[in-house]
Simulated assay, not measured.
Amino acid sequence: MKNKVVIITGGASGIGEATAALFAAEGARVVVSDIQEEKGKAVVERIKKNGGNAAFFKADVSVAEENEALVNFAIETYGKLDIAVNNAGIGGEANKIADMSLEGWHKVISVNLDSLFYGMKYQIPAMQKNGGGSIVNISSILGSVGFMGSAGYVAAKHAALGITKTAALEYSSENIRVNAVGPAFIDTPLLDQLDDDLKQQLVAMHPIGRFGKGKEVAELILWLGSDKASFATGAYYPIDGGYLAR
């Protein structure tokens, strides 16, 4: 990762924060992006304190122009773009389909799916100028199975696999690899809103007997971003403690 330039959206907490720290520790120059400016800047400061190279850029991934500005910032700051980790996302409104608000549906689709299109629309041309690159889109185990009360999230995460495969087909000949990662329930701030009983029910759905850790997902993302994964493209990599094996 030495001197590689990577953008990580949703980098202020959870999987994004763990991924930013790991890439920086391996020598990458990291652009941490999030809508949470204070937390994002704190992540950058921790990276710098540990000897890494990072910069923060505030962006709302559901807005096309802010994705473009993020890519431009990476190039202006570090001169190029080698890797993009499209990680930002929300759980969204928890309701059955007939009870879900139109606003709730549109918001989760915008943040979790439109963001992937917007991100890649501007990331890919930057990588073309650089002679190639790697894009890792963060989907979910719910990119391949259903989950009651989360129709918008499940739909967006399924769609993330489709757009990932299509991008891989379109750009593999230009040395741009595109893959998707499917975490199960990871111990991140997204789970903080759940009560203890529900958390224990969710833990029981993982044969390994616990939630995953952000750094465990980050290790897979790091591999996919690196040249060690040079033959990996268009694929979906669950990391789920056995969730999908049930």
Rank of each mutant, 00 (worst) to 15 (best):
E37R: 09
G14R: 08
S230D: 15
K80I: 03
K58A: 14
L194I: 05
L70T: 06
V5D: 02
P189E: 03
G242H: 09
N112P: 14
G149K: 09
E66P: 09
F211Q: 03
E216I: 10
A126C: 08
I8F: 02
A12N: 09
S13P: 13
I8N: 06
Y118E: 02
A160V: 11
A126V: 07
V111K: 10
L202C: 03
G92S: 12
S115E: 07
E216S: 09
G11W: 08
Q200P: 05
R177I: 14
S140Q: 06
F231A: 06
N86C: 10
E219S: 11
V71G: 06
G14P: 08
E174Q: 15
A155S: 15
A156M: 03
S134T: 10
A156Y: 00
I239K: 09
K80W: 00
F211A: 06
K49T: 11
V154R: 03
S110I: 00
V32Y: 10
G152Y: 01
E66T: 05
R29D: 01
A168H: 01
V85A: 03
I90Y: 04
S115G: 13
L191W: 04
H106Q: 13
M100T: 04
P207S: 13
L161I: 15
A156H: 01
A168F: 02
P207E: 14
G133E: 06
I135E: 12
A64P: 11
N67M: 10
S172H: 12
D227L: 08
A59L: 00
S150N: 12
P183V: 02
E38M: 14
E17F: 06
V111M: 05
D192K: 15
V136T: 13
V43Q: 04
Y243W: 07
A25D: 12
E93F: 04
V108I: 11
A74K: 07
K121N: 13
F185M: 10
I221A: 09
N53K: 14
V32N: 11
G91M: 13
T233F: 01
A180Q: 00
I221E: 04
K96N: 15
V181K: 06
E170D: 15
A235M: 08
G143P: 10
D187C: 11
I83L: 04
S110D: 13
M1K: 08
L244Q: 07
F23W: 02
T188Y: 06
I109S: 09
K107R: 06
G146Q: 03
S101V: 01
G89N: 12
G51F: 10
S101T: 12
I97E: 01
V181M: 06
K58Y: 05
A21T: 09
M120Y: 08
M127N: 01
A155M: 06
K213A: 14
L222V: 03
K199E: 02
N112T: 12
S139Q: 08
E219Q: 14
L198W: 06
G51V: 09
F185Y: 13
V61P: 01
S139A: 15
